[in-house]
Computed example of a mutant assay.
Amino acid sequence: MSRAPLNLPRLAWRYLWARPMLTALNLMLLSLGLAAIGFVVLVSEQMEQGLRRDLGGIDLVVGAKGSPMQILLAGVFHLDQSTGNIPLATVSQLRTQPLVAQAVPISLGDSFQGFRIVGTTADYLGLYQLSLARGASWKAPMQAVLGAEVAGRSGLKPGDRFHGTHGLASGGDEHEQAYEVTGVLAPTGASSIGSC
């Protein structure tokens, strides 16, 4: 007695056709699994691009006494409370070192509607390759350039004034002296306010 050769694709098709609910469940689970894998790949790619953008051109971070991780998270990624500021004389001393190509100081601690106010120099704009969409860069103390997201959410534009608050939490003590908005940055995905 001879047997007919086994036709695997035909057998699989009959099995799937005989159990439609199980087939639908398997297809749904396969689709969800592929979607989850795609989501993880996209998120990890975007996180990697963000890390590269935020760390681009930064070889060393100098900060006040505290946790090195906290200094990095606060100073570079703006994700943690600042450990405090170092003296301006220390920044000047770093700039005179022959192995230091550029020193970009930042001062953190205040905010506006939950967005950090970053006290810095114009070198900060060059370090992150930021460009202005409207207005001009700051020229004097208490002038500020807003990020695109900050300007969009607050409705502020060049010529307007705002008061910063101490700390990151809303409802903090408000500064008496107001900042003057001199410009708005082109959108980049970052959300800090830069000021002089």
Score class of each variant (00 low, 15 high):
Arg116Lys: 08
His78Glu: 13
Gln102Gly: 02
Leu72Ile: 06
Thr121Val: 07
Gly66Met: 07
Lys65His: 14
Thr165Cys: 08
Ala101Asn: 06
Leu73Gln: 05
Asp54Phe: 11
Leu156Gln: 08
Met21Asp: 08
Asp123Trp: 03
His166Ser: 07
Gln143Cys: 04
Met21Tyr: 09
Ala178Ser: 08
Leu73Gly: 05
Val61Ser: 04
Leu32Trp: 11
Val181Gln: 01
Gly171Phe: 10
Leu79Ala: 14
Pro68Asn: 02
Leu55Lys: 04
Ser92Ala: 14
Trp138Pro: 00
Asn85Lys: 11
Pro20Val: 01
Val184Met: 04
Gly66Glu: 07
Thr188Pro: 01
Thr188Phe: 04
Pro5Arg: 12
His175Val: 12
Ser111Leu: 03
Met28Val: 15
Phe39Gly: 10
Gln70Phe: 03
Val61Lys: 03
Thr83Met: 14
Lys157Val: 14
Leu168Ile: 11
Gln102Glu: 10
Ala186Pro: 03
Thr182Asn: 01
Gly66Leu: 04
Gln97Ala: 11
Leu146Cys: 05
Gly194Arg: 09
Leu32His: 03
Phe112Lys: 00
Gly63His: 03
Gly194Gln: 13
Arg134Gly: 04
Val145Leu: 04
Asp54Gln: 11
Ile193Val: 12
Val150Pro: 00
Ser82Glu: 06
Arg134Lys: 13
Leu30Lys: 03
Gln102Ala: 08
Leu60Gln: 13
Glu48Ser: 14
Ala178Leu: 03
Leu11Val: 00
Val145Ala: 02
Pro9Tyr: 02
Gly183Met: 00
Val61Gly: 07
Leu27Ile: 09
Gly152Ile: 06
Gly75Gln: 00
Leu8Met: 08
Thr23Gly: 00
Leu146Thr: 04
Leu156Pro: 02
Ser195Pro: 06
